[in-house]
Nucleic acid binder design. Structure first.
Length: 497
RNA sequence: GACCCGGUAGCUCAGCAGGUAGAGCACCUGACUUUUAAUCAGGGGGCCGCGGGUUCGAAUCCCGCCCGGGUCACCA
């Protein structure tokens, strides 16, 4: 088929038609044209006192001999066009019939009318080939189902599936809404390094790279936290960054080695303030994107209206499993785990608590703030002012998944140094996910960081909910895939095969 | 990492009691001036994921590998 298309391109050039011209005067989108004329025209009615010009990819052609209907698709949707031999002239019509195929990019000019069946259509008076495709599109009815092609060649998926194209448009909108909200609250969007000397702000294995000028290993950031706090120390009071972070770990429906995080830091605020901000932010985004706070995710209705439920981690686990993570012994907790067939080597009390939580987290479906995690599992959070066994921390749980993590930030340099020290010991003992000692960050804290509340949101996971996507790969346009040997030979012209 | 399922035409899939590789869409040729999965007639198109084995003969059976999907485990 490629051979056939390459032949056609040659034919076009022989006729003096450039199959890859430089531009086109696209005046209106398919959507705009429909908005303008759809209501005013009745089926069969013609509006030939106006002219429209648009462009897009040919998605289907229904040839009737001396006339043809076809659809073109652009960023905003699809629109039908109608071309007729006696209107456009036999030469041009012949070019359309023989040298225009599904998949090509076409510019069309003409006037709007409504077909017998009532679909707004452009009566084509002139067209121009803007790009010849030499590969065929996927099947028009069943579309593209092969996940491998969907992820490896997302451009094909976007062409074939309006849902896919729209999903990434929605992603853009959601991120824009978040920025709009935060800007309105006086937050300043900043940038921090992606290449770092030491990683921190999360527990994760980093990607390692090498800097030639200093002949030293460097890392890709695993979080933006420690640099954003340096902004706060420097004098900024409300900052945020939306950006990629990298974690050299497994891939799953909710994990990607490269993902987008939002982190924000708010001086003089505590975790209560952050909690209020978080639910306002989420509600705002959902409402502005969908016009309602209720959306369906995988067949279940999720209501994002404020206030979100607040639930103390201790209370919830006690209620569900009958064990108290603050009062009961490790043995008691172990017993509960064993009763539920969880048999894992226990590394620490914190690990036990995490495992208990894993047993109950899927019971939390509607947006819920999980509060006051024990100190053992919250190394970066301040202790609770009323109960030193827990921290001023919350996670936002939706559909059993963590969407956000926040706390009153630790700003005591001595305490921070101690925690780094403990972490680096773990690191030396082989724990690749333990924090590295970040002496410059401790030094920065020594200059004094105001009391600060911080928030991290997994943007991709949030977008999964808002686009009803079952896996994170569906909301990352070009997800990481196994490179696989590029065995496809690409040949042009001449050669026989 | 363990287990399960899959990889056949550009796409969606059938074929798997071992015996010349199929359909629909797409493509090419022809007919058709309001179709929308247009219709009708004809035609071309395949390293059956890769490598090995069994066999007179393998898309089909056996072994290994690669790639993908799912479940569980690990991880947060």
């Amino acid at each position: 088929m490629r051979k056939q298309r390459l032949k056609e391109i040659e034919e076009l050039r022989n006729m003096g038609i450039e199959p890859y011209p430089y531009g086109y005067d696209k005046e209106e989108s398919s959507l705009r044209i429909k908005e303008k004329y759809d209501r005013e025209l009745q089926a069969g009615q013609v509006k030939d006192d106006v002219r429209v010009s648009t462009a897009g990819r040919v998605m289907s052609i229904r040839d009737h001999g001396k006339s043809a209907f076809f659809h073109i698709k652009d960023q905003d949707g699809r629109i039908q066009a109608y071309i007729r031999k006696n209107s456009i002239g036999p030469e041009k019509y012949d070019i359309f019939k023989k040298l225009v195929n599904v998949g090509d990019i076409l510019g069309i000019k003409g006037f709007p009318f409504k077909s017998r069946t009532g679909e707004l259509t452009i009566f084509v008076e002139d067209f121009q080939i803007l790009s010849k495709a030499i590969r065929p599109l996927p099947e028009k009815w069943h579309g593209l189902k092969d996940k491998e092609i969907i992820y490896r060649q997302r451009y094909v998926d976007m062409i074939a599936s309006d849902d896919s194209l729209n999903r990434f448009k929605t992603r853009y909108k959601i991120i824009r809404m978040i920025k709009e909200f935060l800007d309105g609250r006086g937050f300043i969007e900043v940038e921090t390094p992606t290449l770092v000397y030491v990683t921190g702000g999360a527990e994760a294995r980093p990607f390692v790279t090498h800097l030639n000028v200093f002949d030293m290993d460097m890392y890709l950031r695993i979080a933006t936290e420690l640099y954003l706090k340096r902004y706060i120390i420097g004098g900024f009071e409300r900052v945020y960054e939306i950006g990629k972070v990298f974690r050299n770990e497994g891939i799953s429906y909710k994990h990607s080695p490269e993902f987008t995080s939002l982190e924000l830091y708010w001086a003089y605020a505590d975790y209560e303030d952050i909690m209020n901000l978080t639910e306002e932010l989420i509600e705002y985004v959902v409402k502005r994107t969908f016009g309602t706070t209720k959306i369906m995710y995988q067949g279940i209705e999720i209501d994002f209206s404020r206030p979100f439920k607040r639930l103390k981690m201790r209370d919830f686990i006690r209620e569900k499993l009958g064990v108290d993570i603050l009062e009961d012994s490790d043995e008691d907790m172990m017993r509960v785990l064993k009763e539920r067939d969880v048999n894992v080597p226990i590394k620490s009390r914190g690990h036990l608590i995490n495992k208990l939580w894993d047993l109950v987290e899927e019971d939390v479906v509607q947006p819920t703030f999980l509060l006051e995690h024990p100190v053992e599992i919250s190394p970066l959070a301040k202790r609770h002012r009323k109960d030193p066994r827990v921290t001023e921390r919350f996670e936002l749980i939706i559909y059993g998944r963590e969407i956000a993590n926040a706390f009153s930030e630790l700003n005591d340099p001595v305490d921070q140094y101690q925690r780094f020290l403990e972490q680096s010991k773990l690191r030396e003992a082989g724990d690749e996910e333990a924090h590295m000692m970040d002496k410059d960050f401790v030094r920065a804290l020594e200059y004094g960081m105001p009391p600060t509340g911080g928030l991290g949101i997994g943007i991709d996971r949030l977008i999964m909910f808002l686009t009803d996507s079952p896996t994170i790969r569906d909301v990352i346009a070009f997800p990481l895939v196994n490179p696989k040997s590029l065995d496809e030979e690409i040949e042009y012209g001449g050669e026989e095969k």
